[in-house]
Nucleic acid binder design. Structure first.
Lengths: 96, 96
DNA sequence: GGTAGTTACGAATTTCGTAACAATC
DNA sequence: GATTGTTACGAAATTCGTAACTACC
């Protein structure tokens, strides 16, 4: 499980389409498809139903989507918090 | 930023020592040291103070530690939730 | 035949571990 | 000189993209 896999998963879930999600992520279809397959393999269950139109979330996928969004948002918050903290520290106590 | 980097960070923070953290993670010191340096580089700030005894958390590191623990716990929960869900599904609706 | 996802496979990138280095007691 | 973290660098593993394949209308 990696953040890259989770980002890929959310993009495919939101687009319902590997091709569009790949464009959105500036990737090609095959690696993105592999991310989803790896995730399904690791979790031991299918996350999407493959339809002729694209990908539709299955119940396990719906559940993962909630968790994935929260995790990715928390990572974003963590990065921005620590960055802001260090910026403020630098402007308050300049060292040079 | 990757989950591997966050795991490495938490281990070093808890052990206060790259060598011990490396043993705990079944890794050698250099890659682990690089994980911390990469994290510090990405966040634009030092996370640890290097002492002759080992590594001591700086304020930015304390902040990140809270976020990192929560993120890693959420990932663990997500994996276990989806896995349990699929196991229950399989025993309730056997397909073969 | 067009649209979708997947597999094969070689190239590029990343990440690892050994060895050597630097710094502090 | 012993203990700590870091840098150099070649080897191993991962991940990418192109091309070819499969499946469904």
């Amino acid at each position: 499980m990696s953040l890259t896999h989770l980002q890929s998963f959310v993009a495919v879930a939101e687009e319902g389409h590997v091709g569009r999600a790949a464009r959105r992520l500036h990737l090609t279809q095959p690696p993105l498809s592999r991310h989803i397959l790896a995730l399904e393999d690791e979790l031991g269950t299918r996350l999407f139903e493959r339809t002729p139109r694209g990908m539709r979330l299955l119940p396990a996928g719906e559940t993962l989507l909630c968790h994935a969004r929260r995790i990715l948002a928390d990572v974003d918050t963590a990065v921005r918090t620590v960055r802001n903290l260090s910026t403020r520290e630098r402007s308050t106590h300049p060292e040079s």
